[in-house]
């Protein structure tokens, strides 16, 4: 085990290479997930604060024929 970590005397070079690669790749993944979560929360809050315009329009469209039927 000690021999494995010693890397034939090149431990500093080998392990810092693997460590840096892990740091960059995990760091990017974590930052990406955070950004995605944050954006999704903001979008939910925005959608919750007011009904989306399209649905309102659709409800209006659905309501008017019914009204016409009622009038007829």
């Amino acid at each position: 085990m000690a021999e494995f970590f010693a890397m034939g005397g090149y431990a500093a070079y080998v392990w810092s290479s693997y460590g840096l690669a892990a740091l960059v790749m995990v760091g990017l993944l974590v930052a990406t997930l955070k950004a995605l979560r944050g954006a999704e929360t903001t979008l939910k809050a925005l959608e919750g604060s007011r009904p989306p315009r399209r649905r309102r329009a659709r409800n209006g469209a659905a309501a008017s024929p019914a009204a016409e039927v009622g009038e007829g």
Partner: peptide, 13 residues
């Protein structure tokens, strides 16, 4: 793919 999803949500916002 994850970053693209985040970008699309960002555009929507």
């Amino acid at each position: 793919l994850l970053r693209l999803r985040a970008e699309i949500v960002q555009r929507k916002i």
